[in-house]
Amino acid sequence: MRHTLSVVVENKPGVLTRVASLFARRGFNIDSLAVGETEDPTLSRMTIVVSADERALEQVTKQLYKLINVLKVQDLDPREMIDRELVLFKVNAPADRRAEIIEIANVFRAKIVDVGRASLTVEATGTSEKLAAMENLLRAYGIKELARTGKIALARGSRDA
């Protein structure tokens, strides 16, 4: 089963290596990972998507807590979290098909962020499902290049104390 872990760590050099190395040596695959500073500049939040059964997840959580730089590990409930990812699609766009691509972008509330002679670059944010649907549609035009940030997530406000 897929889990989204939200891991608060000290914002120090080498912490990403420690976390990534732990997943690798304990045999857990990371599906995606995104890191950035939090509201407190001394802390970073890592959002890690991992496929694991309950027992493996418990073990990886405990192992994460053993890292001195790890402060908090949350397994976010998919029904109680906000998650987003940002994707840049560079799509083949001959002049006669540009309108269609722009139309698709609009439907998905995506933005055209660069226009080339034969391509358009689309910036889209959303859940993994939405982005997968969009990718599917854009594939018909030929995706020249694609970059994604990996998922970031927070627990919903209703979960706050």
Binding site: P13, T17, S21, K66, I68
Partner: peptide, 16 residues
């Protein structure tokens, strides 16, 4: 050596 010993130390430091 800090990179090498991540998996075999409880913690390690590089003094900067």
């Amino acid at each position: 050596i800090t990179g090498i010993t991540i998996p075999i130390t409880k913690h390690n430091y590089l003094v900067d």
